[in-house]
Every structure is written in C-alpha cells, then in structure tokens.
C-alpha cells in the first residue's frame, strides 16, 4: 500500500485534491510537488479533501503554510475540507483555523470559492 497518494479533480479553474494515507516529514514532499505543479499551470484555487488522510504532522502543516500566501496573492486560496476529528485537532492545536478556511464538506468549500469570485 502506498504511504501517501494524491488524486485530483478539475472543475473549471478549481482543483480538488484528495489526500490518502499519511502526511509526515517523509511524504510531505509529494504534496509540495503537487502545489508546484499547480502553480506552474497557474491554478490557484485549491480545495483539499482530507477524507482519506489518516495522519498529519507539522511537516504537512508546513506545506499549506508554504503556498497559502502565493495562492491568495493570485486571487486563489487553499480551502480544507472533510477532516476527521483527529486531523482537525492537529490543525486546531496551533490555531490554523485562524488562517485557513476549513469546511465540513467539499461542497461547502466549493460554494465558498464561488461566493468570493
């Protein structure tokens, strides 16, 4: 079984990333590469669906911190959805919901993008 994989869906200028497995100091570079790829394609509106993610450490949090400013400065954003309580607790521990838009469902995240367009 793969330790960490990403599948994606494109809907107009919006990209939805589905994370699977665990996101730690070993696997976070996979997500970094994905964001680099999106930037190179000028895709700045990203929803990240966490439903398949079993674990995240600070290395994973760091990836979102690394790209949020660039995406927002290009009229985009990273919106996070479908987190288990376990994953949400890690985001919440250091106050990440202050900076990031975290929604219960993917559809809510998509609606929020449409509201701000």
């Amino acid at each position: 079984m793969d330790e960490f994989t990403i599948t994606e869906k494109k809907s107009g200028d919006l990209i939805i990333l589905y994370l699977n497995g665990f996101l730690d100091a070993h696997t976070s570079s996979v997500l970094e590469k994905k964001f680099e790829e999106l930037l190179s394609k000028k895709l700045y509106k990203v929803v990240v669906n966490f439903s398949g993610l079993s674990y995240i450490s600070s290395a994973g949090l760091g990836v979102f911190m690394a790209y949020i400013e660039t995406l927002r400065s290009n009229s985009g954003d990273i919106k996070l959805s479908n987190m288990s309580d376990k994953i949400y607790n890690i985001f919440d521990m250091l106050g990440f919901p202050i900076l990031f838009n975290i929604t219960k469902d993917e559809s809510e995240a998509i609606v929020k993008f449409n509201e701000t367009v």
Partner: peptide
Amino acid sequence: KEYFKKFKIGGLGIPI
C-alpha cells in the same frame, strides 16, 4: 498570530 500574519514556515514541531 504573528506566525500566521507573516506566513512563516516550519518551527512547529516543538510547539506541538
């Protein structure tokens, strides 16, 4: 608050 305002990266392992 300062960390998020300045979009800092890294250094969160020890706080966790």
